[in-house]
Simulated scan of single mutants.
Amino acid sequence: MTEQPKPHKVRHLDARTLRGLAHPLRMRLLSSLGLDGPATASQLAARLGESSGATSYHLRQLAEYGFVEDDPDRGKGRERWWRPAQQGIRTNADLMRDQSPEVRGALSTVLHEYATQRAQEVSTWIATRNEWSADWAEASSVSDFTLDLTPAQTFELSRKVHELIESYRALAPEGNTPDAAKVRIHSHFFPTRPAGDSDSDSDSDSD
């Protein structure tokens, strides 16, 4: 009997939990736990170049808001290991439209930190690509596209891309497959204006 993949738990942010996440170090801690695996506050401090006091404090804050939890399979005595409480985070439409200055500020912090982390990941790949096999070099992609779309078409495209990516979770290789690795996939869908154009209703020719 084929073992079913574990469900991919996704956390939907609200105004309260957004404020609990909106701190660059907390987001870096959560990202490190997700990508590099469970760790103690001291191990995370070494990974991120921070003090263990700072990582310990912000881990407790993340736990209070439900983003991280104890790892019951690790730790000895007073040693406390942490792991993510979910595998993904999403913002809903209501949160994106919230006009509260506090919410908008927190959301900007979160989005800017995500953008910074993703840029760093791409830079790391470019700097270390020669350490990977030729197959990985050929399989990787750093691409961008420009399309003329309506908001509804953009939403549909985003949904279809996400559905395609999610369909590959069930295809994850089992056990210690030699050529398998964690693959990071970034997606950004956003409108742009021609340089110098501040009129949102202006028409332009696409390349």
Results as ranks from 00 to 15, higher is better:
43 Q>V: 09
43 Q>P: 05
44 L>C: 02
45 A>P: 00
46 A>F: 12
50 E>M: 03
50 E>T: 00
51 S>T: 09
51 S>K: 12
52 S>D: 11
53 G>Y: 14
54 A>G: 04
55 T>I: 04
57 Y>K: 15
57 Y>L: 15
58 H>I: 01
59 L>M: 11
59 L>H: 05
59 L>A: 07
60 R>Y: 13
60 R>W: 14
62 L>M: 10
62 L>K: 06
63 A>V: 07
63 A>L: 12
64 E>A: 09
64 E>T: 08
65 Y>T: 10
65 Y>C: 09
67 F>V: 03
67 F>W: 06
68 V>K: 07
68 V>H: 01
68 V>M: 08
70 D>K: 12
71 D>L: 12
71 D>F: 14
71 D>I: 10
73 D>I: 11
77 G>E: 03
78 R>Q: 06
79 E>L: 05
83 R>S: 02
83 R>Q: 09
84 P>T: 02
86 Q>W: 05
86 Q>A: 13
87 Q>F: 15
89 I>H: 07
89 I>G: 03
91 T>M: 09
92 N>D: 15
93 A>R: 10
95 L>K: 02
96 M>P: 01
97 R>L: 13
97 R>F: 06
98 D>R: 11
98 D>A: 11
100 S>K: 07
103 V>F: 07
103 V>A: 05
104 R>N: 06
104 R>P: 02
105 G>Q: 14
105 G>L: 13
105 G>Y: 10
105 G>E: 14
105 G>S: 15
109 T>Y: 05
109 T>P: 09
109 T>V: 14
112 H>C: 02
112 H>V: 00
114 Y>H: 09
114 Y>T: 01
116 T>N: 09
116 T>C: 11
117 Q>T: 03
118 R>P: 02
118 R>T: 05
119 A>I: 15
119 A>H: 14
119 A>F: 12
120 Q>G: 06
120 Q>N: 08
122 V>Q: 13
123 S>T: 06
123 S>Y: 11
124 T>W: 06
125 W>L: 07
125 W>N: 04
129 R>S: 07
130 N>A: 14
132 W>A: 06
134 A>L: 14
134 A>D: 08
135 D>A: 10
